[in-house]
Simulated assay, not measured.
Amino acid sequence: MSHSTAPSTSAPKAPAPSRRGMLMGAAAIVVLAGAIALDTTVVPIGSEADVRVQAFSPDSYGQEQFPRIQAFVKEKAVDAATLAPAVLADKDAAAEQYGVASSTGAIMFVTLTGVAGEARSGVYPLTVDGLPEDITVRVQTGPAINGTDLRDAPGDIAFGDFKNQIEYQDAGSGINRAMKAAVLDGIDTASLTGKSVTVTGAFRLINPKNWMITPVEVAVQ
């Protein structure tokens, strides 16, 4: 007795990709790779571009900026005997003539010689001949140098140059530290009382009778 068996059937094969489809796919990959290459910039290590993409360094910024800020302040500095009557007579006119505008009081530039009194937290009062007695002159010598007077002195360091307010504030601190290293670290600032000190620096004109000077040059006699 014969047995009939049903013909076996195998699973259908997937159609082979056409040569045209393969060529189109390869072409798309080439185009994509080209687009990626065009959009990619090679940045050599240590180049100027490499420095820009690194995290902001307040100390590097301060060391870069302080020399030109120092030169600017020294060039603009007015003798205290000239500046004092001007700010007492007309604060705004004096700021326009001798200072650089700032959002929180003009930055003024002064040079003077005075006798240092007793320091308080690194800030020395100075007795300056020829100045009205109602003007208080002080100079800060550290260890901490406060304020953003040096940052704001040239008038061209703007908030928009930085990523955020923290970087903008840190820039001022970096400049202050660079000043301290260049100007004050070579001076025995702990023992200036009674000595004659010549100071060139900047202060913010808020109260015409109260000058808190951040120095850019100090000489002790």
Rank of each mutant, 00 (worst) to 15 (best):
Q140D: 08
R138H: 08
F159H: 04
D152K: 06
T141G: 02
T113M: 09
D156R: 01
V137A: 03
G174Q: 02
G114K: 05
G147Y: 02
T127M: 11
N176Q: 08
P132F: 14
D170R: 15
P132C: 11
G114W: 09
R120Q: 10
L112A: 10
A178G: 07
R120E: 12
T148W: 10
L131G: 01
G172K: 03
G160Q: 10
A178Q: 05
K163C: 05
G186M: 07
N176H: 05
D188E: 12
D134C: 06
N164D: 14
P125H: 07
D185M: 13
D185K: 10
K163R: 13
A158L: 15
T189E: 09
Q140W: 08
V128Y: 05
S191H: 09
I175E: 00
T127Y: 09
D185L: 12
V137K: 02
I145P: 00
G130I: 13
D156N: 04
N164H: 04
L112T: 09
V115E: 15
D156I: 03
G172Q: 03
I135P: 01
R120H: 08
R120Y: 10
P125T: 08
I166K: 10
D170Y: 10
D185Y: 10
Y168V: 03
A190F: 14
G174N: 02
G117L: 06
G160A: 15
G174F: 00
E133C: 02
S173I: 15
T148A: 14
D149G: 03
G130P: 08
R151G: 01
A171Q: 01
L126M: 14
V110Y: 02
V139H: 05
K180F: 13
G172S: 03
Q169C: 06
T113F: 11
N164G: 03
N146Y: 13
A171V: 01
A144M: 12
D185F: 12
G155M: 11
I145K: 04
V137T: 07
V123E: 10
D170V: 08
K163L: 15
G122M: 05
V115S: 12
G160M: 08
A158R: 11
P132N: 10
I157V: 15
T193R: 01
D134K: 06
F162R: 00
L150A: 00
F159S: 02
Y168W: 09
F109T: 00
A153N: 05
A181C: 07
I145Q: 05
D170E: 14
